[in-house]
């Protein structure tokens, strides 16, 4: 890549901002209060959840209403792996991701033959079915759920690091993925699935990859969340409120943008904490969040990040492939002259 002063300045600025943010995040438990640490930990988890829903709905056209299934599976797998099998917590988290992937791949052969509303309802149905199964199995504690005994030994700061590492890795995965060939194909599928198919983009395989990545990371995220709760219970872990939260985060932040779930996740955690101090009725909080989401859709349909990007003409963590940058990165031989050039 050819470097000029402006490129170097821009790159330096981006690296400095990234290093400052990462340094602040990784040192927060040493200088921040316990409540702040807990808030940022929650933000990490909700941003991860938002990124994964955005990957499905914002880039692949797969509007899932069943993300709670992977949260629950991640939580339960962690509980069984650490408490029943005596495995380390990290292994339990990864196993939660793997079990989620196995379920997602198993269901994909049915789910990926559906589109739009049918896909959305089917994912919700499978999540509800999973809830009913888990809530009736004695081994999994039926309706009472399971304790994650090992997680009791951890302090908030330790779980905080699990959350931060997860959200940083997830953001990197999303950026790398969307800048890859698969990402280009996903953008094409999002914009027009039949035209993308006749342009050579393999529909089933591309969507399956998205489901695998999304289910794995959401499963791990569920494990990290229930590590902080110490107790996983079916009606909470398989609740649709997880997907509602993901939808809110992405709609507020900006669907189909990389920075959208980050902004949306921060707003969601602040709002839900603030609303919980105002009202003790959980469902009322959901109604208020819903009204806010509708208001944002009416005022700024592309979400906060989408609207700001459109207004000011820049993209945060952009996956855009500009001709000039591509040519600078991969110099190619001069192409044949265009018609206009040939005529002149």
């Amino acid at each position: 890549m050819r470097l000029n002063a402006e490129n170097i300045k821009g790159m330096l600025l981006r690296y400095i901002v990234a290093i400052v943010i990462l340094a602040a995040l990784f040192t927060l438990p040493f200088w921040g209060g316990r409540y702040i640490v807990m808030l940022v930990m929650l933000m990490g988890m909700y941003i991860t959840l938002g990124h994964m829903w955005n990957l499905l709905a914002g880039y692949s056209g797969l509007t899932s209403l069943g993300q709670q299934m992977y949260i629950g599976v991640g939580g339960y797998t962690l509980a069984v792996a650490s408490t029943n099998l005596g495995l380390p917590l990290v292994v339990g988290l990864i196993m939660g991701g793997i079990v989620s992937v196995i379920i997602a791949v198993g269901l994909s052969y049915l789910l990926l033959r559906m589109k739009g509303m049918y896909f959305a309802i089917a994912t919700w149905m499978f999540a509800e079915a999973m809830l009913l199964i888990v809530a009736t199995v004695s081994f999994l504690g039926k309706g009472q759920g399971l304790f994650i005994t090992e997680a009791r030994k951890l302090v908030t700061a330790q779980i905080y690091y699990f959350s931060i590492v997860l959200v940083v890795i997830t953001t990197i995965v999303i950026v790398v993925l969307l800048r890859s060939k698969l990402g280009l194909g996903l953008f094409a599928i999002r914009d027009n699935d039949s035209a993308s198919a006749t342009s050579g983009v393999p529909q089933f395989k591309s969507k399956l990859y998205c489901m695998i990545i999304s289910s794995f990371i959401t499963g791990v995220c569920g494990g990290v969340f229930y590590m902080s709760q110490v107790w996983v219970q079916p009606y909470a872990s398989f609740s649709i409120s997880w997907t509602v939260a993901a939808v809110f985060i992405v709609v507020i932040g900006g669907i189909g943008t990389i920075a959208g779930p980050i902004v949306g996740g921060i707003i969601y955690v602040f709002l839900s904490q603030y609303l919980s101090t105002l009202s003790q009725i959980g469902s009322l909080n959901m109604v208020i969040l819903g009204v806010i989401a509708v208001a944002v859709i009416l005022v700024a349909p592309k979400g906060i990040v989408g609207t700001v990007q459109e207004k000011f003409g820049f993209e945060i963590l952009s996956a855009r492939r500009w001709l000039g940058k591509s040519l600078a990165k991969v110099p190619v031989a001069p192409a044949p002259a265009s018609e206009a050039e040939r005529e002149s």
């Binding site: 280009l184 953008f187 914009d191 050579g200 492939r321």
Partner: peptide, 15 residues
Amino acid sequence: RPFEGLTVFENVLVG
């Protein structure tokens, strides 16, 4: 049926 959110270059890159 262009990929409306992508640039002209990106549309052709898909192909």
